[in-house]
């Protein structure tokens, strides 16, 4: 009866209902805020504010509802790595489109 398995100390994280309710209230508040602020003239900053609120909401959902804060390091690495690829997709695409009008095309 040899059991080679090592009884791994795996902490089962069970968040309280209060934590989830708090996150939900924060998410609903931020939804109201992003809607209200859209009617205010912030100039170029309106997009920045809208995205900052959206990113905050994403972090709340990912860290609490998707349990990323209790996940293994490998899972965290995969999540951050995925977002990095998305940034490469968006930023490298925009380096072309944003600068097209500003930098002349050689030979033209």
């Amino acid at each position: 009866m040899s059991d080679h398995r090592q009884e791994e100390h795996h902490e089962q994280h069970i968040d309280t209902v209060g934590t989830y309710v708090g996150v939900l209230v924060a998410l609903l508040f931020l939804t109201g805020l992003t809607t209200a602020v859209a009617y205010v003239d912030l100039g170029a900053f309106s997009t920045v504010v809208a995205l900052a609120i959206a990113v905050t909401k994403m972090l709340l959902v990912a860290l609490f509802f998707m349990h990323v804060r209790h996940s293994t390091r490998l899972t965290k690495l995969v999540v951050v790595g995925g977002l990095m690829w998305l940034m490469i997709l968006l930023l490298l695409t925009m380096t072309d489109f944003v600068t097209r009008g500003r930098i002349g095309v050689p030979g033209k």
Binding site: A50, K57, M66
Partner: peptide, 25 residues
Amino acid sequence: AGLYWHFVDVIWIFLFPLLYLIDRH
């Protein structure tokens, strides 16, 4: 399945301000 459902939620979190809320003023 929870992870999937929350992911779909996160997509909407970005779609809402980007599609509905451009320069409403």
